[in-house]
Structures are given as structure tokens and as C-alpha cells.
Design a protein around this nucleic acid. Structure first.
Length: 426
RNA sequence: GUGGAUGUGGUGAAGCGGUUAACACACCGGAUUGUGGCUCCGGCACUCGGGGGUUCAAGUCCCCUCAUUCACCCCA
């Protein structure tokens, strides 16, 4: 085995792809229920989109982007997240000209150049949704409710919803000043990263995992302490709506998201039992983002959840995914002539929508039976020289273990009749 | 970028200095004429991630390298 898949990528092969399909179906269903429409944007974008959209001070932009120059010397980046692209598309396609808000969802691969570990990949998959053009707290609550309901539907248990408000451009500045003032004389006790953050983005010191930083930060002014009137009112309304919707949320004043664009409401969903990477969903409001990338002033809010991590949670909880519907037909033909006839019969059955497999390995009858058994076939149609001359086919019912001879031209009807009565074939 | 763990057939794994590298599962084939799920038999690693070294002798010891994996930072 010489060529292997790149680090941090995965092959999703039969046996696990069914779980992905299950989630994808549930995602499309819930989005439809909540009135979201799908949007598909490019997998790669101009690097500048993410630099401006995600933010220059973020880890994503600083060290995690897959960036390269294309043959036209343009700097291209494989998308590390979805929100910036959706906002770009909103502007580029002038969706602001349609009745607001615009509710969009996406589902697909994202790329970040990181060291891998449990729950962290270089190519991973996100389901995300964005609401653009609505600044009402109702929107925040509806988005969070969609997430809550989604996890309820697919059976994710023991999750925690953390919410916070990080303020707007006005109160953020005030918070920044107070925070720097508070930390000024403790600065040298902060970890190296936080000393850098102190200048660039002091808010992120709040959720530093370093124990010594956490100690320092215990009584620090949080964003909640400095919210302006508007932001405070917004946050109160969101909480009220979440309470009314019976969503079990926790206010976490120290939760600060790592992406620069968040304003006001921010939230995260945490699950346990899947290793160190326990955030299965994250999001928030980003009222300045559309403007930042050149569009009209537009409020926005959205979230993204990691498909791999959700699957990890479900597997950890030992969720029963539906078994493959077994059934279908295997055509067991013996000899050249019978194979030709079997090929023709297979085609007829398939055209009628009956799932049909034929031995393609030239196995003997015994091994074709074994094969059919492992396939979980419901019927085996046996055709050899003898049946050919008698113009019949042996139909063997694999679950009952008995068989009958059916005239060649009655086979299709016979199987269709069986299907009508018991619904096992696809 | 940093630290730990691991690398033997398709998979799970024995072997820890000495003739032909266990075993299980999977896979392929067979067990009197063309019939599955049980049973039995046979086949399936000139080779132990790669390279170098020590030794009479290395999968087994040492070094390097690569890969995988977990963890830190951060996040989905």
C-alpha cells in the first residue's frame, strides 16, 4: 500500500456511509420544517474573504488555512468554515433584495490545516444555517431552537447549551478598556498566548484554558457586565424566548468564541464522551459581517455543527441506526447460455425496480448460494441448462428455504406479486 | 509547532535474539452428479512501516525516518 489518504481525511465506506445519509436526511428535513433553503457555495474562495470575514486575529486565519496560489497567481483558500461564503453569496446574488430575512443552510466539507486528534480533522463536514437580514431576538431564539430540536430528533442526549452575549461594536470597546485596565498589573502573570491577546483581542483571555489565567480571570469584568442598553435588552429577550421554548440553556459569561465576527448572542453546544473536542455546535450573531465584506448593513446569525462529532456522540451513546433493508434478488446462472439469459432477466427486474444482483465471478452454484446468503438476498433465481430447456426458473426463497419452478415469462409478475404482499424488495 | 503511545497477512492479534513467523475472524476453493446459513478439509505474510547499525544470528537490541493515534493551543 503506497499511496494513502492525506492526513486528517477519511474514506467513508459502505457500513458507515449509511449513518451519514441518515444525518443528511434529518438535516434536510428539519431545515425544510423551519423554512430554510439550501445554498451551495464554492469549496474554495479568495483568501481575502476569510481574512476579512473570519478575522485576522483568529487561529483559523493565522495558522489553519489551506491557502495556495492558482495558475493565475490568485490566492485561493479551501473554505475553513461556511459563514463567510454564505454572506459573500448573499451580497453577490443580491439576496438582500428579497423579502427578509433570508434563511439558508449548507452541508459539506470544510478544511483546516491542523494536527489531528479525536474529533479533529483536516477535512471535516459541517451542517450550518444562517439567517440574514433579521435582528430581532426572535431570530436568535428560532435558530437555537432549530439546533435543540435537531439534537432531540436524532437522539443526542446529555448536551449542554451555553449562551452568552459578547456585545456590539459599542459596548465591546467599553469592555475591552475595562478588561485591559483590570488586567494591566496582572499582565505578566498571564500565559504567553494571553499576553499577545491582551493587545490584540483581550476578550479571548476570558476563556483561556490555562489554569493560571483562569485564576486571574475569576473576577474579571465580563462582556455581560458592560452590555449597552440595546444589547442587554436583546439578550434578555433571547433568554425569555429560550425559556418559553423549554430549552435547557446555561449562561456562560466567559464563553468567548474564537471567530472575530460575533456580536451579541454567542452559543455553543457541548457533548461529553467524545474526547477533548467536545463542542458539537457553535454559532452566534454577526451583525457587522456582511458590511465588512462589502455588502449593505445587514444583521445575521448562524451556527455550524460538526457531522463527525455528532456521529461520534451517537456512536458513544450506542444509537441504533436502522439496519439495511435486506432483500432483493440474486440471479444464479450456470454456464454461458444461462448467464446470458440471466443477464437479460436481471435487466428486466431492475427496470421494474427490483433490486437485483447477479454473480459476476463465474462461481459454481454452491458458492453463488453462499454469496446470495451473505448478500441477505430474499430470493435466488436459479437458471442452468436444465431450466433453460424447460423454459423455467427456480425461485428459491432464502428465508423459508423452499423453492418452486416458475415459467420464465411469469417471473417478473411472480416477484411483483410477492413484493406487493410483503414489502421486502426495493 | 510541542509531548506521549503504537506500527507483524484483509482484520484482530501471538512471537520480545536462534531452524519452515502461532492463532482467530474474514476471504477464496473443496467435501460423489447443480443449491446458502452448521460442520469438516485445503489455500492465503520469501516476511514483520522504511532506512541504517550492533551481532555468528534481529520481527525481537540501538539510531534515524515515515505513518497512525491521543493530548496541548484552538475549534466543528
Amino acid at each position: 500500500m503506497s499511496i494513502k489518504r492525506p492526513k486528517g481525511t477519511q474514506d467513508i465506506v459502505p457500513g458507515s456511509v449509511e449513518k451519514w445519509q441518515y444525518l443528511e436526511n434529518e438535516i434536510r428535513k428539519i431545515c425544510s420544517d423551519y423554512g430554510y433553503q439550501e445554498i451551495r457555495t464554492p469549496i474554495f474562495e479568495a483568501t481575502e474573504l476569510f481574512q476579512r470575514g473570519v478575522g485576522e486575529t483568529t487561529d483559523i486565519v493565522n495558522k489553519e488555512m489551506y491557502t495556495f496560489l492558482d495558475k493565475g497567481n490568485r490566492s485561493i483558500t479551501l473554505r475553513p468554515e461556511g459563514t463567510a461564503s454564505v454572506c459573500r453569496a448573499y451580497v453577490e446574488n443580491k439576496l438582500y433584495g428579497q423579502p427578509q430575512p433570508i434563511k439558508l443552510y449548507y452541508l459539506g466539507p470544510m478544511f483546516r490545516y491542523e494536527n489531528t486528534q479525536a474529533g479533529r480533522f483536516r477535512q471535516f463536514h459541517q451542517f450550518g444555517a444562517e439567517v440574514l437580514g433579521g435582528d430581532n431576538p426572535l431570530v436568535d431564539a428560532e435558530v437555537i431552537h432549530l439546533i435543540w430540536e435537531f439534537f432531540r430528533r436524532i437522539g443526542v442526549k446529555n448536551i449542554k447549551v451555553h449562551i452568552n452575549s459578547v456585545g456590539c461594536s459599542v459596548c465591546r470597546v467599553e469592555h475591552r478598556d475595562k478588561l485591559q485596565e483590570f488586567l494591566q498589573d496582572k499582565k505578566t502573570d498571564l500565559c504567553h498566548d494571553c499576553q499577545v491577546r491582551f493587545e490584540k483581542n483581550p476578550m479571548r483571555i476570558l476563556d483561556c484554558k490555562n489554569p493560571s489565567c483562569q485564576a486571574i480571570v475569576t473576577d474579571v469584568p465580563t462582556t455581560l457586565d458592560t452590555l449597552c442598553g440595546q444589547c442587554a435588552e436583546h439578550f434578555t429577550k433571547v433568554q425569555k424566548l429560550l425559556t418559553m421554548a423549554e430549552i435547557d440553556y446555561h449562561i456562560n459569561p466567559k464563553m468567548v468564541r474564537g471567530l472575530d465576527y460575533y456580536q451579541k448572542t454567542a452559543f455553543e453546544v457541548i457533548a461529553e464522551g467524545i474526547g477533548a473536542q467536545s463542542a458539537i455546535c457553535g454559532g452566534g450573531r454577526y451583525d457587522g459581517l456582511v458590511e465588512e465584506i462589502g455588502g449593505p448593513t445587514t444583521p445575521g446569525i448562524g451556527f455550524a455543527m460538526g457531522i463527525e462529532r455528532i456521529l461520534a456522540v451517537l456512536e458513544n451513546q450506542e444509537k441504533d441506526f436502522e439496519e439495511d433493508a435486506e432483500g432483493g434478488v440474486v440471479v444464479a446462472a450456470l454456464g454461458d447460455l444461462a448467464q446470458q439469459e440471466g443477464f437479460k432477466l436481471s435487466t428486466e427486474l431492475r427496470q421494474a425496480g427490483i433490486s437485483t444482483t447477479m454473480d459476476l465471478m463465474g462461481r459454481g452454484l454452491k458458492n453463488q448460494m453462499k454469496f446470495a446468503n451473505r448478500q441477505g438476498a430474499r430470493y435466488v433465481l436459479i437458471m442452468g441448462e436444465e431450466e433453460l430447456t424447460k423454459n423455467i426458473v427456480i425461485v428459491r426463497d432464502m428465508s423459508l428455504g423452499d423453492q418452486t419452478e416458475i415459467p420464465r415469462d411469469k417471473i417478473l409478475n411472480y416477484l411483483l406479486e410477492k413484493r406487493k404482499n410483503s414489502e421486502f424488495l426495493l
